[in-house]
Design a binder for these strands. Structure first.
Length: 426
RNA sequence: GUGGAUGUAGCUCAGUGGUAGAGCCCCGGAUUGUGGCUCCGGUGGUCGUGGGUUCGAUCCCCAUCAUCCACCCCA
């Protein structure tokens, strides 16, 4: 076993049994995006390392220790994208999509992070993301949240996820709050655990999120982010919650919700579930008004989110929300007995596909006895078996045996098989 | 990166210090051309890998790799 070449740790094969569920999910997403007027953008999975260092933040865990970074043959430092927003902003800027205009974009694809794999967390995983540029009001924040809520409703997940909401304020307000928070933590340095000591200089806001019960009391007395918002951000946040209230979307304001990426400001949100163990975040995002400028563009407000497809698929499976017809077999399975029948079957299959564009027909190949062929027809999940044996060849007919319903076997003339078959199946 | 659990047939798992079994799957037969149920038979494993203890290791010990779960972090 160990000598055999295996997939890279944390990178999974998606097997045929799984792919219908993925396709179902992807189809839901595509139509949803289309319905809200979002257009798809596809960017390379490799980018210059500097793009991520400059956007996500030099001292975040992602950039410090989780990126797949390596040298190109010419010495450039390249990185497999750990998230989608940076590349999306880069591409939009590069092609002038942000020039004095608004944009609603979405993307989908693999992301890479070198973390220890566990349930719902993989080294290659897939995200669907949404990014809206050039709109600074709370209406667009509300729109992307409503869009995600609609997806949960479509998938039957809405009752199983919770929306958590917070505001980080403007970059300036956040910086001021950060200083105040660090000062508070300095006073209680003896209570801070090892992780938090480390974060004190790198990402003090994250300390608020700690699960360590020994620090709970100290954290409860810490200055609150929401008390230190600048006026504009507070108004923005109030207008957002008012819009969500009007739309009937429930949420929980979580003053300790801080995102791990540096570029967020003002609105941040997460959709979480308790059904997946410790990887409970299924979708997360927020506003990142400063990022475009930070990456060298003309300042443009932006808001977006990303959802983890593996986690959502896992959730659908856990909650038994997999649509039943996603595993459907072909309409017909065509089997043939004997050399001459085999040759005719190949052509008959083509004839039927020509005449009936929506027909799904699987041809039996590889010979075998009648019994084994019909057994395979059954296993394929097909609704009918089309039988082309020596007798049928002789008589210029084809047999139609229904495999999943009590119906008499039919014999169709080869002259008008397509019409007759189509009529039988409807 | 840290901690814990687990690695035996394609899958789910038993099992023993004397080199292995079940169920499912797959193939064939009972039924010269009619599946799902039943019965019978068959294919399939260097017992994750390397080393150690032992007359002998799949079992005991060590290491290593992988998977899973949790921490951390995050989608």
């Amino acid at each position: 076993m160990s000598k055999k070449i295996q997939a890279i740790r944390g990178m999974n094969d998606l097997l045929p049994e799984q792919s219908p569920l993925w396709q179902y999910f992807e189809h839901q997403v595509e139509t949803l995006m289309q319905r809200y007027g979002y257009r798809e953008i596809r960017t390379p999975i490799l980018e210059q390392t500097a793009l991520f260092a400059r956007s996500i933040g030099e001292v975040t865990d992602i950039v410090e220790k989780e990126m797949y970074t390596f040298e190109d043959r010419n010495g450039d430092s390249l990185t497999l994208r750990p998230e989608g927003t940076a590349a999306c902003v880069r591409a939009a800027m590069e092609h002038g999509l942000l020039h004095n205009q608004t944009q609603r974009l979405w993307y989908q694809g693999p992301m890479f992070r070198h973390e220890r794999p566990q349930k719902g967390r993989y080294r290659q995983f897939h995200q669907v993301g949404v990014e809206a540029f050039g709109m600074e009001g709370p209406d667009i924040d509300a729109e992307v949240i409503l869009l995600s809520a609609r997806l949960w409703k479509q998938l039957g997940l809405y009752e199983h996820v919770t929306l958590e909401l917070n505001s980080l304020g403007s970059l300036e307000a956040r910086q001021a709050y950060r200083d105040k928070l660090v000062a508070y933590f300095e006073q209680h340095r003896d209570v801070l655990d090892e992780d938090s000591q480390r974060r004190l200089s790198s990402n003090p806001l994250r300390i608020l999120d700690s699960k360590n019960p020994d620090m709970a009391e100290m954290l409860a007395g810490a200055p609150q982010l929401l008390d230190h918002l600048d006026t504009e951000s507070r108004v923005h946040f109030e207008q957002l919650t008012a819009r969500l209230d009007a739309a009937g979307i429930e949420y929980r304001i979580n003053p300790r919700l801080v995102r791990g990426l540096d570029y967020y400001s003002r609105t941040v949100f997460e959709w979480t579930t308790t059904a997946l163990g410790s990887q409970g975040t299924v979708c997360a995002g927020g506003r990142y008004d400063g990022l475009v400028e930070q990456l060298g563009g003309k300042p443009a407000p932006a808001v977006g989110f990303a959802m983890g497809i593996e986690r959502l698929i896992l959730l659908l499976e856990t909650l038994d929300l997999v649509p039943a017809d996603s595993q459907r077999g072909p309409d017909a399975y065509l089997l043939a007995m004997g050399e001459r029948a085999e040759r005719e079957a190949l052509l008959l299959g083509e004839t039927l596909r020509d005449a009936l564009p929506t027909l799904s027909l699987q041809l039996h190949c590889g010979g075998g006895g009648f019994k084994s062929q019909i057994k395979k027809a059954d296993k394929s999940g097909a609704r009918v078996a089309l039988i082309l044996g020596e007798d049928e060849v002789e008589q210029g007919t084809v047999g139609v045996k229904f495999l999943r319903e009590e119906r008499e076997q039919a014999s169709l003339s080869r002259d008008d098989v397509a019409e007759a078959l189509s009529a039988l199946l409807n």
